[in-house]
Simulated scan of single mutants.
Amino acid sequence: MSAEERLRVGRRTVVVTRPDKVLLPADGITKSDLADYYRLAADAMVPQLRPEGIEGQSFMRKDVPDHFPDWFHRVELPKADGTVTYAVGDEPAALVYLAGQACITPHRFVSRADRPHHPGRMVFDLDPADDDFGASARQP
């Protein structure tokens, strides 16, 4: 198992640690596979993650860890008992970096960072009650 993989994404080099780590065992999908997918899908994904927030680009993730690289954009927003620092994934390298953090399902914020209490988008997260989408889809 290799300790890390260095991927060139645009003008950035993203390090994926433990690229051989299996994230989805049933399919054998590794962190490296996810990073490759995000890199290939970035042209379609990044525009969907930009709700015209901070300087027109944003993708929110709660509580950015201190180890995220300096180039990874962040925004701090209030919450009930303090603040949350969100990640702003505004470029393909950010998606690849998130894959390296084993972020399998990035959830986009539904409002702009400068107007957090005024959502501009509605998202339906249609998770089945169990692991079988087929059975859930057949329910009346």
Results as ranks from 00 to 15, higher is better:
9 V>A: 11
31 K>L: 15
26 A>L: 00
123 V>A: 05
86 Y>A: 04
15 V>E: 02
49 L>N: 02
84 V>Q: 04
103 C>I: 15
37 Y>K: 00
15 V>K: 00
122 M>P: 01
34 L>K: 05
83 T>N: 12
6 R>H: 14
10 G>D: 11
12 R>K: 15
103 C>L: 14
131 D>M: 11
17 T>M: 00
6 R>N: 13
30 T>D: 04
3 A>D: 08
79 K>Q: 12
21 K>G: 07
55 E>W: 09
43 D>T: 08
4 E>S: 15
25 P>C: 10
131 D>G: 15
92 P>S: 12
67 H>S: 14
38 Y>T: 15
140 P>R: 12
56 G>K: 11
44 A>E: 15
55 E>S: 02
1 M>I: 08
12 R>N: 09
91 E>P: 01
35 A>M: 14
27 D>V: 10
77 L>D: 12
83 T>G: 01
71 W>R: 09
57 Q>H: 06
68 F>A: 15
65 P>K: 06
88 V>N: 06
46 V>K: 10
66 D>E: 14
104 I>P: 00
5 E>T: 07
68 F>L: 10
79 K>P: 02
90 D>Y: 00
29 I>L: 14
119 P>F: 08
110 V>L: 02
126 L>G: 05
24 L>Y: 04
100 G>T: 05
80 A>N: 09
119 P>G: 07
117 H>S: 14
121 R>D: 07
125 D>H: 07
121 R>G: 09
107 H>T: 11
52 E>W: 00
9 V>S: 09
57 Q>A: 13
2 S>M: 06
76 E>W: 05
34 L>R: 08
111 S>C: 07
102 A>P: 03
104 I>N: 00
13 T>G: 08
51 P>K: 00
53 G>E: 15
104 I>L: 08
120 G>Q: 02
43 D>W: 14
108 R>E: 06
120 G>D: 10
13 T>P: 03
66 D>C: 05
94 A>R: 11
96 V>W: 04
138 R>G: 00
70 D>Q: 11
52 E>K: 09
19 P>Q: 10
28 G>R: 06
77 L>H: 09
104 I>T: 09
52 E>L: 01
117 H>M: 07
113 A>L: 06
124 F>G: 05
124 F>P: 03
11 R>P: 01
84 V>T: 10
46 V>G: 08
136 S>E: 14
87 A>M: 14
31 K>V: 14
109 F>D: 09
31 K>Y: 00
61 R>N: 11
49 L>M: 13
132 D>W: 05
116 P>D: 12
1 M>E: 10
139 Q>G: 02
70 D>M: 01
20 D>S: 04
100 G>Q: 01
48 Q>D: 08
92 P>F: 14
124 F>H: 11
2 S>K: 14
129 A>R: 12
83 T>S: 15
111 S>R: 03
107 H>I: 11
64 V>Q: 03
107 H>K: 10
114 D>K: 09
72 F>S: 03
4 E>A: 12
39 R>G: 03
37 Y>P: 01
38 Y>H: 12
92 P>M: 13
55 E>F: 02
83 T>C: 05
111 S>E: 04
80 A>C: 00
92 P>Q: 14
20 D>G: 05
69 P>V: 04
100 G>M: 09
69 P>G: 06
70 D>C: 06
111 S>Y: 09
76 E>I: 13
69 P>Y: 03
97 Y>A: 07
46 V>Q: 12
127 D>C: 12
